[in-house]
């Protein structure tokens, strides 16, 4: 599914300064094509994560709109948008994002647990396949408190992919991973993109450029094209 941002920008008001508005993302036009891995690089605080959240339906833009195909997702009501995210969008957020009361396979199958449209047991084989690919198959029944940062990242990646969504948004997906696992994760995202999914990755790892089909750079909320380093 093609994702298009038309003039999508975001202003915030600094809580400590009352009415002091600042622009995190300037009005941005960008297209994320299915079958391609789109990379966004930039410094910390440049607005990359904000743009990712806008594109993935998690943060309504102050200006502009975001289209999935021809649908403006921010015109949906909350229930419809949430349902849309559940089915069509996989998000790998920054940091540790496990549900502490669920074991690894429970965390991976979370989108199905929320939607309740499929017997959980029927999705276990694919969950196990993803765990195998990500090198965490031995952790199926382990609780998040017992996992390392890298393992938790890979659980979040599997969770984003479990529903085979049309679009995957990854915010620093390799930040806790060693080189071997970084290559493994980026390779998996690249393969997913090659299978027709729109993949959008935010990172500051320059090595990721080798996996990108399209890449952008963001500075002070403004996006610009960056030539892939092939």
């Amino acid at each position: 599914m093609k994702i298009t941002a038309q003039g999508a920008g975001k202003d915030f008001i600094r809580q400590s300064a009352g009415t002091n508005r600042f622009t995190a993302v300037q009005p941005t036009d960008i297209e994320i094509e299915p079958g391609k891995l789109t990379l966004l690089m930039g410094r910390s605080g440049s607005g990359k994560s904000t743009l990712l959240n806008i594109l993935s339906g998690l943060l309504p833009p102050t200006t502009g709109k975001v289209l999935y195909g021809n649908d403006d997702i921010y015109a949906f009501d909350d229930v419809k948008l949430s349902d849309f995210r559940n089915i069509h969008i996989g998000v790998i957020p920054q940091g540790q994002t496990a549900i502490q009361s669920l074991d690894v396979i429970g965390n991976i199958c979370l989108p199905y647990m929320l939607k309740r449209d499929t017997e959980l047991k029927s999705v276990y084989p694919y969950a196990r396949e993803l765990m195998e690919r990500l090198g965490i198959s031995h952790l199926e029944s382990v609780m998040p408190a017992e996992l390392s940062g890298g393992e938790l990242r890979r659980v979040a990646i599997a969770r984003a992919m479990i529903r085979k969504p049309d679009a995957i948004f990854a915010d620093e997906p390799t930040c806790d991973l060693d080189d071997e696992n970084t290559a493994l994760v980026l390779g998996l995202l690249k393969e997913t993109a090659a299978n027709g999914t729109s993949v959008f990755v935010v990172t500051h790892e320059k090595d990721a450029l080798t996996y990108a089909d399209v890449s952008y750079r963001m500075d002070s909320g403004k996006i610009s094209s960056e030539k892939p380093n092939r």
Binding site: L81, S82, R85, N86, I87, P93, T97, I99, P111, R159
Partner: peptide, 18 residues
């Protein structure tokens, strides 16, 4: 204490009502 968990639930498709 579980705000982050609830944010994760939102990313996975939980509505505000949910």
């Amino acid at each position: 204490g579980r705000k982050k968990e609830f944010a994760v639930l939102r990313t996975a498709g939980a509505s505000r009502k949910k």
